[in-house]
């Protein structure tokens, strides 16, 4: 059934990604590929992997953005990992004509049944975030499973029962937990840091949250403009040493 669950999932498993911490190392994407190439949605087919134009299915991709403040000219580089946000109102689920795409009532994870997917790609059109990719080799759609085959896996030590991207992050920029429970650690982090939804105007109500970069001291100083460039010429000699000020006065 591709309608969203009648009883809204109380448990909402998801990720919280800290953009203040992420260093853009791509380790989460690599470990995601490594685990999932043998997991629930295996294989994650690569086309021409060693050729001139390799491409393939990835559940997690790391973009790098720059935000430049219009007034101060201060810029900030932000590494931005993006995977499925397991939305409450997942449009990829309701457009699916076969019922292959579904949202689990027990934990809110959005999955694809590869046995009934016809590969029409409409779910990838409906998703604003590019979370769904087509596996040309298998003819079906694939997406992040939130490592459903890891997080409940009793063969793994308890500390490893988290998505591969979370366990591998060397900087601790990724958190996993129940965002439907306001007392969970992830919910508290989101509340404290002002976690945001991506493209809220699309009405998808994503479960995953992004923590914006922390403001640095320099951001809080209103009159602080961008650092000067080498071509910059000082108009005043304020702050210069006694000798420099005297020379300046002599020459100007």
């Amino acid at each position: 059934m591709t309608s969203l669950p009648k009883n809204k999932p109380k448990k909402k498993l998801g990720l919280v990604i800290d953009l203040d911490i992420c260093v853009g190392c791509h380790a989460c994407a690599v470990n995601c590929k490594e685990w999932n190439a043998g997991g629930h949605s295996a294989p994650l087919t690569d086309i021409d992997p060693y050729g001139a134009k390799p491409k393939g299915v990835w559940f997690n991709r790391i973009h790098t953005f720059e935000a430049v403040h219009e007034e101060t000219g201060r810029s900030r580089t932000v590494h931005f990992p993006k995977s499925c946000l397991h939305c409450d109102d997942a449009p990829c689920v309701t457009v699916c004509p076969t019922g292959a795409s579904y949202k689990r009532e027990e934990d809110g994870i959005v999955l694809v049944n590869a046995d009934t997917c016809i590969g029409c790609k409409l779910c990838s059109w409906a998703c604003p975030y590019g979370a769904r990719e087509y596996d040309e080799d298998e003819g079906v759609m694939k997406k992040c499973t939130l490592c459903v085959d890891r997080i409940y896996n009793e063969n793994l030590p308890e500390s490893s029962r988290a998505p591969a991207c979370v366990t591998t992050c060397p900087a601790g920029a990724r958190h996993f937990g129940d965002l439907g429970d306001p007392s969970s650690t992830v919910s508290k982090i989101v509340a404290k840091r002002g976690g945001v939804d991506l493209m809220p105007e699309q009405g998808t109500r994503p479960v995953n949250k992004y923590l914006p970069p922390r403001l640095k001291n320099i951001d809080k100083q209103k009159d602080q403009s961008a650092p000067r460039m080498l071509t910059h010429q000082d108009d005043s000699s304020d702050g210069a040493g006694l000798l420099a000020r005297w020379v300046d006065k002599l020459l100007s």
């Binding site: 953009l19 953005f65 935000a67 931005f80 991506l198 493209m199 105007e201 970069p213």
Partner: peptide
């Protein structure tokens, strides 16, 4: 809005 970074510029 896609990145949630609009406040930064």
């Amino acid at each position: 809005s896609a990145t949630g970074l609009a406040d930064f510029g």
